[in-house]
Design a protein around this nucleic acid. Structure first.
Lengths: 340, 340
DNA sequence: TTGTAAGCGTTATCAC
DNA sequence: GTGATAACGCTTACAA
């Protein structure tokens, strides 16, 4: 049970091996007659080209390396839409996806490029100061970052427009007559690990609130889990008085615990208080109650990343690097008090 | 910026190319002296072997193909521990992981094997009658199933021991004096898609309850989402009277909505009613309140799958196929009423 | 429009 | 213990 080769196809079709190759690649004109004979033979033998041989001869693997942030640090749920979209974008261009976990660090990157395992790399979960960036920038293959480090070292980046997300949340709460805002920050672990979208978001939120002249405070850090959320909510509600209070919760997994804590204190989201979360629409629809949200658009971000990656691959001259920020969208659901 | 080859290493070390190869593979004795010279040259040039060339010459790719159930059907959160464990098991044996999404169906399998993209395949999310099984069984590479189809067609399977999980839940509730049980079934979509662990679980649960002589009913199908959970809870509570009622919720994503619905009806889990869920320990710890659970052990299941896969790969004679069922564990948390 | 043949970078079989 | 050298299966000049 050994696989057929292009030689077998050539013999079966009565043509040369190169003709088989050219029929498959379309890199040279083939007469209708022979093309059909070859295709018939391919069909007949259920021939599939050997990937290793092809990579060796053509110097291109048709594989995209994907470095994902697994391990305890990962936002377990939010990751899948990224992976899924990247996988399907790759398939749409006839490429495979090779999975590498981030715990391999720079070594994984070196291996991917050094062994010619892939033609390009998608690097997720970028830190502000990320050891892997200089390594990534020195590889023989193009690398695209999902996330924006302090110094991209010439590498193209794609990410959600976090400042815009923050502004949208604040603008919305301002427009619906809120006169006090609380921003629920991220966990200390997140902060210290150096995800700088945290700062980008909070800075923009505070600036926007100032611009509207709305008093605000930021409650941070907020650890992961129920207890931390309750403490944060208590701090948010401290000294609460008349008027409309708006909460902005940018960390996806903190949203539900915050909603729970509010309900437990008899403060009903959507009636007594407004809550806007930053998360995917899918996640927002599932919270109880469904949280009004700024969408984090993992699919858009991934799609854009793959687009620019394939552009780099097509025009293999080094295009000038870009930072693409994907705009979020606001969807009002059940947790925001409507206009008076 | 082109990569060095083993030829370069050979020249630098003053040996032949084959010696370099043998130093790396250890497939023949090498004198200490030349070994060190070669290793130094490798280090010096940061040489890495070309994967395509190696695959071509050795007929082994050192890649494991992983077919994952993405798309709307996927249990978005529960998937990651599988992928993560499979990835790290692969790395531990110096193998890469190639990701293929299940929406490609049998075509993905054919491509994986036909193009010699991998040495072995892990197929997840197996249906009772799965079109891919006969295809998988006919491939040139070993395939292992995570899940148990009605007819494995000679392929080895690994899965959680769902009947045992059901028995453990029922035994626990029986031991703590419950005198009525309700099993919350799965969604119609799940059922019709043919996941037979559904039936395996429910059948075993009902049998166990009968064995204990405890009256029970099964509420099914239960669709995904809040509304369906509430309806199910209402049916579960219907005609409720004195005594201890125990709920068993085998669908991971249904657990939290069920807990919410109970609380909303003033029925406190762990005081007025017992709830046992089937989910990972991580998920259980995060529910509100933390649900007593039978763990679904995705890491154990994946690890076992990779173990047997590598065994197949090592002793490439076809070992006799096995069905390995991984035992779950019970952890009491906050949702079960303790012994009187 | 098609065929010939020289690689691509390894591995593994012979020799020595 | 080590070195030549023939595959491995494909792509792609170069010829015709």
């Amino acid at each position: 049970m050994v696989a057929f080769t292009s030689k077998d196809v050539a013999r079966a079709a009565g043509v040369s091996q190169s003709t088989v190759s050219y029929v498959m690649s379309g890199k040279r004109p083939i007469s209708q007659r022979t093309r059909l004979r070859v295709l018939a033979a391919i069909e007949e033998l259920t021939y599939e080209p050997n990937a290793g041989a092809r990579a060796l001869a053509s110097q291109r693997t048709s594989v995209i390396g994907l470095v994902v942030p697994f391990g305890p640090a990962a936002d377990t749920a939010g990751l899948l839409p990224f992976i899924e979209t990247i996988a399907s974008s790759a398939r749409a261009r006839d490429h495979e996806v090779l999975l590498v976990t981030a715990d391999e660090g720079s070594a994984g990157l070196r291996r991917l490029a050094g062994r010619s395992l892939c033609d390009a790399i998608v690097l997720m979960d970028i830190l502000a100061h990320d050891d892997r960036i200089p390594v990534a920038a020195s590889l023989r293959v193009p690398v695209i970052l999902i996330g924006v480090p302090d110094d991209p070292a010439g590498l193209p980046c794609v990410d959600l427009d976090f400042p815009m997300a923050a502004r949208m949340a604040v603008d919305e709460l301002a427009a619906t007559g809120h006169d006090r805002l609380v921003f629920i920050g991220y966990s200390a672990g997140f902060m210290s690990r150096g995800f700088n979208f945290v700062r980008r978001f909070l800075d923009a939120a505070e600036a926007a609130a100032d611009r509207h002249g709305i008093p605000h405070k930021t409650v941070a850090p907020v650890e992961w889990g129920r207890a931390a959320a309750e403490k944060a909510v208590d701090r948010a509600l401290a000294g609460r008085r008349k008027g409309r209070l708006g909460l902005v919760v940018p960390h996806s997994t903190t949203i539900q615990p915050v909603l729970n804590a509010l309900s437990a204190r008899g403060v009903v989201p959507g009636r007594d208080i407004s809550v806007i979360g930053l998360c995917t629409d899918a996640t927002a629809a599932e919270t109880e109650p469904p949280v009004s949200n700024i969408s984090s658009e993992p699919r858009d971000v991934s799609r854009r990343a793959m687009q620019t990656l394939f552009q780099l691959l097509d025009s293999d001259g080094p295009t000038r690097p870009t930072i693409e920020l994907v705009p979020p969208r606001y969807t009002r659901r059940r947790t925001t008090i409507p206009q008076p």
